[in-house]
Write a protein that binds this DNA or RNA. Structure first.
Lengths: 107, 107
DNA sequence: CAGGATCCGAACCGATACTG
DNA sequence: CAGTATCGGTTCGGATCCTG
């Protein structure tokens, strides 16, 4: 992989799964299918607006799937796509590095 | 690793190496020691202000080292710390995932 | 229940000018 | 050469209110 391409793919990855909320959302979705309200309960700090917005973007990037049940009251389920599943290892590596970083700054 | 801890270490990693410029800067520093002006030339799109700012933050997080030569004209060299070297694999994994993401959206 | 719409402050980022 | 200082635009994020 060329140097320029390396940089741009790293940037692309951060555009798709970076930012304040997306990694957290993705972590929760690694547990399996979740409803909107469940995700909201899992992340009390996030606002409804942000949650909706970030979910839409993840959906556009085909990282998560949005399944709408046409019923009253509404029900919407979110889950990782097959492609989205592959993000787990990226999150794992990031978690490991963060872990090492923490320990290093303490000891 | 607990679920909460997993999330927070992922977030920590993104705080340290995430954002618009840091990954690019780190990519360039994987080549070895670079002077300020070299980095600036490597990244024509970044402003001097942003480059300085991001370098300071990376230095504070002990990811890069800043060596000042007290001379005229000034000379400052930046390099990855030993700890910073460990970021390479994180960048690698992100680059790989981005690569796959690209190919998937084309095919 | 799962959102859409609106308003507003904060943070991010860039352009420019200046300096030891 | 390697910055610092200042200003202004844009984007991000949160609070609040409204709806099928």
């Amino acid at each position: 992989m060329g140097d320029q391409q390396f940089k741009s793919t790293v940037e692309l990855t951060l555009k798709v799964i970076g930012g304040k909320w997306k990694p957290v959302i993705l972590c929760h979705l690694t547990d399996g299918v979740k409803r909107f309200g469940e995700l909201k309960r899992d992340m009390p700090e996030i606002t409804q607006k942000m949650l909706t917005q970030q979910l839409r973007e993840l959906e556009q990037d085909e990282v998560i799937h949005r399944k709408v049940y046409t019923q009253v009251p509404p029900k919407v389920e979110y889950s990782l796509t097959d492609h989205g599943q592959t993000i787990k290892e990226v999150l794992d590596v990031m978690a490991l590095w963060g872990q090492g970083h923490l320990e290093r700054r303490r000891g």
